[in-house]
Write a protein that binds this DNA or RNA. Structure first.
Length: 879
RNA sequence: GCGCGGUUAGCUCAGUGGUAGAGCGCCUGCUUCACACGCAGGAAGUCGCAGGUUCAAACCCUGCACCGCGCACCA
């Protein structure tokens, strides 16, 4: 046992314990264990990533689940790792290359560039892993995985080949979402629709067969008109249907283009005439297919105009070209009007620029096991929490589209396809290159990062691990990646393992700033969790964040909340310190045979109730409730209530009473530390050791492996029949204390000043509690006197212990006291009226549950009793 | 357009049919022998609006308003 400092200083304690756990291999499970398995795979953060508050929330929840599972006797695997994050990582390294060497990746060439990326990854990647250790995460670091590990890559390629052979992967020239900055195709999920304030331009195209007559067309993208290869109207539109089959002049480059009739056109929008640019719009492309229109691509991949747009536009950026095209139309007298218009534009998720619909050769996947995956969530085989996310999943799965899986990047899993040099139509699709590689060229593209992440729950495990821990138990993630990751993992699980990948998915909320904005680097509104850890301790931030993280609801972050977590840690620290000051603790307390005070019985009953409620909260993944329950129990019930009351035993002359109270403190503290361990692991471990607690049969010296308290057997050996009466008595004393303190405050006696009180005792046991009562109200003496005669105007209050008097030797005049009691009477009368009204309602008395009615009747009796006593007190004051 | 959340004390949020809760902030008093990262007391809410169901509604139903999000979109 060592001396404990006055305030908890988390830094040294946290570092000490984390390294001790690591040294003792506490996080590494044994696949051969006979214990039931519990497993989680971490949502792999980007290898470029830095810890955000989102990660803190997410990983703390996982850690809480893992730690509690260990205490419940499970063999626990929490498997960590990082994601290669194709675009993000490649961008970081390219930027560095440009800045430091003024080179592009093409200057280096593919192989040399990839070497650089690996170098970067070894040197700077995975910082976030170190940061997770600071948080106290109990991941099995010996199993850390990376989505580009050799064996993981083999698995990705095998999956590609398998799906290709099943006919689910195909190559095709399709309209895809093209990012002009990253220069790659993207999946539909990587496109974010944003509302844009732009313009709707009305322009007119001259009819080729009727010079001088024009068709008016509305568009938001005049810069693509050079790629127009037709004009479309609705075939039934009375205004235009006679024109179908004739031609108009595209103004520049000047060309005759046909007018086609197509059902897709909405006659009510704009002028009811659409310019058709098959190369630059998905709907236009489809119209083009239907009418066999020419496809005229006027853009370079980087979003600048190409030669087909005409010499004056070639090389111009698409947005500059928009202005230029409008000007040119104006000069030609073809611009009718411009009106402000709001529409939605798709943005690239990573580069945050508008994407271009672009026709290109890409690889696509027809998703496997869609029906089975839909059913899994519907039936609850994979349980979503909160449940409402199941609808979002359902909707997406019902409308699922083929997935564009190829990316025009270098960093990633290269597609295992080779084309014969002398005949590109001859392909070799296999995890191994062809035997005569010199005659083949490998596909240049890599796979979408998510095409590797979707295998994460099983591709990260070796056979022995998979045998024990797959399918995993819980997945904890944000609802923002429900399509990117969760849905795809479920499908991959069924397709490649024949099983669901996890039993439960818990969706956390998003953390927002105080004005409700999403935390982001660019807004600079995201505090660095490491700063917060340094300031408040990992346990403080864990507890503070979880206490305010409701089920699946977004969270407004306020540093105050973390401060509360730190304060709670300090409270625990000092409560332990207080216990330690009164001698050594018993390593294992047995309640049996102890002579217990009412206060002890009461706090033990509340402890048991806490365990019951905590188990229920965990059962529903209500972590905020669990945190709040522990906070309230420990701070209010234990510290403010029990410890203060027990001081009269601890400081008493009776050694038996003192020992009994200390034993109860040990019992409560040791159980509290067990319950707290998942949330505040470092502090709990530290206090557990400092106080010298142990537990039987846990086979390990670490608190994290001590058994979770069992509510059913917690109070075994206790005089159960005394519990109820003890709790009632304690409640009466505490209520009396509150009223007495209130009285002191009302007559403005400073809280540190001792007073002499007189009590006309009510219950026959009042005397037994008078010493404790006196201590709690800071009274020098409490004199019990059935026939006490108060002075005129003496402050008094009616308590469950009896009428209480606070002599002030005439400092308060009778009228002031009368006024105070009159106010109390008014309050009681109001309460009585409320209850009376309810009880006089026959419908209530007949229909409400008997217990509710009885409760009301009792309330009425109590208030009546109180009223009559107050009136008597009023009378004795001469009122 | 369809769908999903939210709207409770000054602030951040709990509270799924039976007398409105917490923390912070605020006011008052306390360096009382664990803790000022603390102790004690207090003020403060027509539970978004309007209907309905019920003996009883913050809670269930209907409609509306506002805030946020997702999906799909008409150029």
């Amino acid at each position: 046992m060592s001396e404990i400092s006055k305030a908890y200083e988390p830094q040294a304690v946290e570092e000490k314990w984390y390294s001790r756990w690591l040294a003792d291999g506490c996080f590494t499970p044994d696949p051969a264990s006979a214990k039931p398995a519990y497993s989680i795979v971490i949502p792999p953060p980007n290898v470029t990533g830095m810890l955000t508050l989102g990660h803190v929330l997410n990983n703390t929840i996982q850690d809480v689940l893992a730690r509690r599972a260990r205490m419940l006797g499970h063999e626990v695997l929490w498997l960590p790792g990082t994601d290669h994050a194709g675009i993000a990582t490649q961008t970081v390294v390219e930027r560095k290359l440009r800045k430091e060497e003024h080179k592009t990746r093409r200057d280096l060439g593919r192989e040399a560039f990839l070497e650089r990326v690996w170098e970067w990854k070894e040197k700077h990647g995975g910082i976030i892993i170190q940061q997770l250790k600071k948080l106290g995460c109990t991941c099995d670091w010996s199993r850390e995985r990376f989505t580009m590990d050799a064996d993981y890559s083999r698995e990705v390629q095998a999956v590609f080949v398998d799906l290709y052979k099943k006919g689910l992967i195909y190559r095709g020239k399709r309209m895809v979402n093209w990012c002009p900055v990253s220069l790659t195709a993207l999946s539909d999920e990587e496109v974010i629709m944003k509302a844009q304030n732009g313009w709707l331009y009305h322009m007119r195209y001259e009819l080729a067969d009727r010079p001088g007559e024009f068709l008016e067309i509305a568009t938001t993208r005049p810069e693509t008109l050079m790629g127009d290869t037709a004009i479309a109207v609705h075939p039934a539109d009375e205004r235009y249907k006679h024109l179908v089959g004739s031609h108009v002049w595209r103004p520049f480059p000047r060309a005759r283009i046909p007018i086609v009739g197509d059902e897709h056109i909405d006659p009510t929008f704009g002028t009811g005439v659409l310019k058709v640019t098959p190369a630059h719009d998905k709907a236009d492309f489809e119209i083009g297919q239907r009418h066999h229109l020419e496809i005229l691509d006027v853009l370079h991949p980087d979003g600048t105009m190409n030669e087909l747009a005409g010499p004056e536009f070639a090389g111009m950026d698409r947005f500059a070209a928009r202005k230029a095209a409008v000007e040119k139309l104006r000069e030609m007298g073809l611009l009718v009007k411009e009106e402000p218009y709001q529409n939605n534009v798709g943005y690239s998720e990573r580069a945050d620029v508008p994407i271009e619909p672009r026709l290109s050769e890409q690889w696509f996947l027809k998703y496997p096991k869609v029906a089975e995956s839909l059913e899994a969530v519907k039936s609850g085989a994979v349980a979503f929490r909160p449940e409402r996310w199941a609808h979002v999943y359902d909707h997406w799965m019902q409308n699922i589209q083929d997935w564009c899986i190829s990316r025009q990047l270098w960093w990633g899993h290269r597609i295992p396809v080779w084309y014969r040099k002398d005949n590109p139509d001859c392909v070799h699709v296999d995890t191994a290159p062809p035997a005569d590689p010199e005659n083949w060229t490998q596909e240049e593209d890599v796979l979408d990062t998510w095409f590797s992440s979707w295998l994460w729950p099983f591709a990260t495990m070796d056979d022995a691990t998979r045998g024990k821990f797959y399918p995993t138990t819980d997945l904890v993630t944000g609802p923002d990646i429900i399509f990117f990751w969760v849905a795809r993992m479920i499908m991959a699980g069924y397709e490649f393992t024949g099983q669901k990948p996890f039993a439960n998915v818990f969706f956390t909320g998003l953390i927002r700033d105080m004005s409700g904005r999403k935390m982001s680097k660019s807004l600079g509104n995201s505090p660095d969790p490491l700063d917060l850890i340094a300031k408040y301790g990992a346990d403080g931030i864990r507890f503070g964040l979880l206490r305010i993280a409701p089920q699946g609801q977004d969270i407004r972050f306020d540093e105050k909340q973390i401060e509360e977590g730190r304060n709670f840690a300090n409270k625990l620290w000092n409560a332990a310190r207080f216990r330690q000051m009164h001698g050594p603790s018993a390593p294992e307390v047995q309640l049996e045979g102890l002579k217990l005070s009412s206060y002890s019985l009461d706090i033990l009953a509340k402890l048991q109730e806490l365990v019951v409620k905590l188990d229920a909260a965990y059962g529903e993944y209500r972590f905020n409730e669990a945190a709040q329950l522990m906070y309230d129990f420990f701070w209010s019930e234990y510290c403010d209530g029990y410890v203060e009351a027990a001081k009269s035993e601890i400081f008493s002359e009776d050694p038996a009473a003192k020992d009994s109270a200390l034993a109860v403190m040990d019992f409560v503290l040791s159980h509290m530390l067990r319950l707290l361990q998942p949330f505040m692991p470092h502090l709990a471990a530290e206090l557990w050791t400092t106080l010298g607690f142990t537990a039987p049969d846990h086979g390990c010296e670490h608190l994290m492996y001590v058994a979770w308290p069992q509510s059913a057997t917690l109070l075994a050996g206790l005089e159960r029949e005394r519990l109820t009466t003890a709790s009632q008595r304690v409640a009466a004393v505490y209520e009396s204390v509150r009223l007495a303190r209130n009285l002191r405050a009302e007559v403005r006696i400073p809280s540190n000043k001792k007073v002499r009180l007189f009590l006309k005792p009510q219950p026959e046991w009042a005397e037994e509690e008078s010493a404790t009562f006196a201590r709690l109200v800071n009274a020098e003496t409490v004199t019990l006197e059935a026939n006490y005669e108060p002075a005129r105007g003496e402050p008094r209050v009616l308590t469950p212990l009896g009428e209480l008097y606070l002599p002030l030797e005439g400092l308060v005049d009778a009228s002031a006291e009368q006024e105070r009691i009159q106010k109390e009477i008014a309050k009681v009368e109001a309460e009585l009226a409320t209850v009376g009204k309810k009880l006089s309602n026959e419908n209530f008395v007949q229909n409400a549950p008997a217990a509710v009615v009885a409760e009301h009747r009792k309330r009425e009796t109590d208030w009546k009793e109180k009223l009559s006593q107050l009136q008597k007190m009023m009378h004795s004051l001469g009122g």
